[in-house]
């Protein structure tokens, strides 16, 4: 075991892992986190807190993680390169590890243009792949990026993201391979609605044997309304929402759309489970955490494995 991460244990035990996403508030209110954490508890092995998702200012990921940890969950802190140079990134890595957080997801970050501070300066000193390598070297080599050594290393289970739906499609697996080579332990993918394309991508992943070197958690999410589906299809870069999905939601009476959205999510979970190399799911019920227990239960993913620390 590299770390004390619950997620790592689940994956090492070859259990089908479930992680969930927790959106932090645009305020200093800790109760939002506690409430959402209570919903997730017992339903997920670990939970992510986004780091300034879509470049909108929200509570810091590490702080929300700490509150969730107090509620008894295993947090995955998200860390983007948009707002921090390599100095800030490494300082945060040290601090996060010292606070007892065991997982970190390394991201480049959504461009500041999309958020509520488009005038901000983007940093992008390093990219997500370089960040993965930096954290791995800190953990395994006890070295900072500059080469200096440290006494106590941050023991973090290192994650990275992958988007099977962005272009150039052929390069997507190469990029995954680079993340693995850089030291990623687990991967959380973009939300999957186009299962066929995901399966195609997974085949390329298996052809390179990457599924044996990294744990891949397939990203899934319920859809609350037809409008949300259409928004994701047209406005969110890197999302692939097939027309058949929208048609399925349009095919039910309005008051049943959200229920259908949950069923759709369960169906997708069942489909991706069958794909060789998928080690778990990452459930992103954004601002709809209440849906998580039902989805996890209906998908037959309960109870979650327990390990004594």
């Amino acid at each position: 075991m590299k770390t004390k991460s619950n997620l790592e244990r689940v994956l090492e035990a070859e259990q089908f892992a479930v992680t969930g996403e927790l959106g932090p508030p645009q305020s200093a209110d800790p109760e939002v986190i506690r409430r959402k954490a209570k919903i997730l508890k017992g339903n997920v092995d670990a939970f992510n807190v986004t780091d300034g998702q879509t470049a909108v200012v929200r509570m810091a990921s590490w702080a929300a993680c700490l509150i969730g940890k107090e509620e008894g969950l295993d947090p995955i802190v998200q860390m983007t390169c948009r707002d921090r140079n390599r100095i800030a990134l490494q300082m945060d890595v040290l601090g996060i590890a010292a606070l007892g957080i065991n997982n970190m997801l390394c991201l480049t970050g959504d461009h500041q243009k999309f958020g509520n501070h488009p005038m901000a300066k983007g940093v992008y000193d390093v990219d997500s792949i370089q960040l993965v390598k930096m954290v791995k070297d800190m953990r395994d080599e006890k070295k900072f990026q500059c080469g200096d050594e440290m006494a106590v290393e941050p023991r973090l289970f290192i994650g990275a993201a992958a988007n099977p739906f962005a272009d150039p499609f052929e390069f997507r697996v190469v990029r995954l391979a680079k993340k693995v080579a850089a030291g990623a332990d687990f991967i959380q993918t973009q939300i999957i609605y186009n299962v066929d394309k995901f399966a195609e991508w997974m085949k390329m992943v298996r052809d390179r044997g990457l599924h044996e070197r990294v744990k891949i958690l397939a990203g899934v999410a319920p859809i609350k309304s037809v409008g949300v589906a259409q928004y994701m299809k047209t406005r969110v870069p890197g999302m692939d929402v097939p027309d058949s999905i929208i048609a399925r939601l349009q095919g039910v009476p309005k008051e049943q759309v959200s229920k259908e959205g949950i069923q759709l999510c369960i169906d997708i979970i069942n489909q991706v489970r069958e794909i060789e190399g998928v080690a778990g799911i990452h459930l992103m019920a954004i601002e709809w955490e209440e849906a998580v227990p039902e989805i996890v239960e209906s998908a037959g993913l309960l109870p979650r494995p327990k390990f004594t620390p």
């Binding site: 480049t108 970050g109 461009h111 992958a162 962005a166 272009d167 890197g238």
Partner: peptide, 18 residues
């Protein structure tokens, strides 16, 4: 726009920048 050195970010679609 992100000065990426290791390949495209997840926002690259149809050859265009996000």
């Amino acid at each position: 726009p992100k000065h990426l050195l290791n390949g495209p970010c997840g926002g690259s679609q149809n050859g265009k920048c996000e």
